[in-house]
Design a protein around this nucleic acid. Structure first.
Lengths: 206, 206
DNA sequence: GACGTTCTGGACTTGATAGTCCACAACGGC
DNA sequence: GCCGTTGTGGACTATCAAGTCCAGAACGTC
């Protein structure tokens, strides 16, 4: 009927996401985007709208992916809830330090950088963090139910603490902190969890 | 002999700092800077050089101020070292949350946002964080000496942990986290310090 | 294979921004 | 009060980026 798309939406958005994460919003021009996607401006505008729309699409895709990842990695039984959290949070560290450019979390970056008048970006980021916090809290409460976490522990607060540390590590990584020191910092923060008997046993096995 | 300066360097840099913190590097134009300083472009270029030089001057001024603040607030005897750290870190929280715009730490912002090719900015930021960490470590070791912190505790790692949490709170604040939750997150992270007997007593008095 | 429709990419327009330059202003010394 | 020197600020230029537009390309259909 008509000429078909020569590109895959998702591949294009992946390239756009990389670009925005690498150079920031103001730092990437449409020429940069055209270069990394190998598309012309006309195609980009027809398919995605203007630069800001493209940014929101890329950010939304990232946030959805990361929130879904948290939910899938953290959901499970109380028996290994502590181990799941440990693995998940360690995965976040590796996400930063295994990247040669140490770009860190895109949501974290634009939580700091995005224009405060950009309500749509702020909403995407806030929802991403909220889902990650909720997944951590649910995992903490599963651990609590099982007897791995003290009964008086506040899951919401501890979830916020863990997520905060991971966000902080992104920033410190950006300033060139030593990877081992960052891992030690995370390890210490994790020990702030008031583990009950079963939780301590679980942690020792890691 | 000649016409005197009509402005004070430090006041101008203070206004420039505010502007860069508010809108970021790419987000502020020279017209913005001219507006907030009430100076013409010619004066700005003659006094400070180009935009990037002006940015480095403002960032350097901020970093020096914050590093010196950490050193002055944290230096002291072991008897109240835990209390000093608590006050200092709480001050960092208030620095974020008492600001209606919640701009957060300038060094943290540009640790994330700055072009990685900007070696001079990276150096200023890294040195700022290094001095803050060193001040925290020295304070922890004073506490240790006094018997407020367990003898086996690693001051470098714990200092990195505390600083990381504070940087993370900046990011979370930018995403609109509730202030009380952020304070709770900080409180929990602080309890990760392996306090010895005297330290626990000291903390209870706060 | 001609046609209609959608896709494509580069040329073009418009606005903004960084940096330069210069005519003039404001002082102190003589 | 004139002069040399330095500060001042706006006009000017050159560059660059965002967004528009259109001529042609690539399909399916008949």
């Amino acid at each position: 009927m008509a000429r078909p798309r020569s590109f895959d939406n998702d591949q294009v958005l992946a390239a756009v996401e990389r670009q925005f994460r690498h150079d920031g919003y103001a730092g990437t021009s449409l020429d940069d985007i055209a270069a990394v996607t190998r598309l012309g401006r006309g195609s980009l505008y027809a398919a995605f709208g203007d630069k800001h729309e493209l940014f929101l699409r890329a950010l939304g895709r990232y946030c959805e992916r990361k929130a879904a990842e948290a939910e899938s990695k953290l959901t499970g039984p109380g028996e290994n809830a502590i181990a799941r959290m440990w693995e998940y949070l360690q995965g976040n560290l590796r996400f930063v330090f295994d990247d040669p450019d140490r770009l860190g979390c895109m949501a974290g970056r634009f939580a700091v950088e995005a224009d405060r008048s950009d309500a749509r970006a702020a909403e995407l980021i806030a929802e991403c963090f909220a889902r990650q916090r909720a997944a951590l809290r649910d995992c903490l409460m599963a651990a609590q139910q099982y007897g791995a976490l003290e009964a008086e522990a506040d899951g919401d607060e501890l979830a916020a603490m863990l997520l905060t540390v991971v966000r902080g590590i992104d920033v410190m990584a950006g300033s060139g902190i030593d990877e081992r020191l960052a891992e030690a910092a995370f390890r210490h923060a994790f020990t702030a969890l008031p583990l009950a008997h079963r939780g301590k046993q679980e942690l020792e096995r890691l």
